[in-house]
């Protein structure tokens, strides 16, 4: 499967989708009003990956900002991994950013996946 690497912009995150490593990473910010056009290719990559997933999948969410439209996409995306074994969501936040930590806890409540919390250095 093709590895996808996208650079971040003012309103879209940097993305790495690496099937060899079983790694998905989103960093920076995700603020698009129209999430569909940005996330559609990512969702179809995920569908393909889930047909033959690695033994371990690590999803890193390293966002400083995301809008409510993105939170729906994230929930939708994470839900797709619920029936795949050994998936960990690595949720990053700034030390003092209690809102982002709480967002992670809310997603953890909403989906049936393991979460690990990390602070940015």
């Amino acid at each position: 499967m093709e590895k996808i690497t996208l650079s971040g912009t003012f309103e879209t995150p940097a993305v790495v989708l690496d099937s060899e490593e079983g790694k998905l990473e989103f960093s920076g910010r995700s603020l698009p009003e129209d999430t569909t056009s940005f996330y559609r290719p990512i969702m179809s990559w995920i569908e393909q990956y889930l047909a033959h997933p690695k033994d371990k999948t690590n999803i890193a969410i390293k966002l400083e900002y995301f809008n409510t439209a993105t939170s729906k996409v994230l929930l939708n995306m994470l839900t797709k991994f619920e029936n795949t074994g050994n998936v960990t969501v690595h949720w990053f936040h700034y030390q003092e950013d209690e809102d982002m930590l709480e967002s992670g806890k809310e997603f953890e409540e909403l989906v049936n996946l393991n979460f690990a919390y990390h602070t940015f250095d």
Partner: peptide
């Protein structure tokens, strides 16, 4: 660049997107 700015920016994003949507 602290928590207040992050909250303010989040509010600004949602306000602006409410207008345009």
């Amino acid at each position: 660049k602290g928590q207040t700015k992050r909250r303010a920016f989040n509010i600004a994003v949602e306000c602006l997107q409410n207008i345009s949507t």
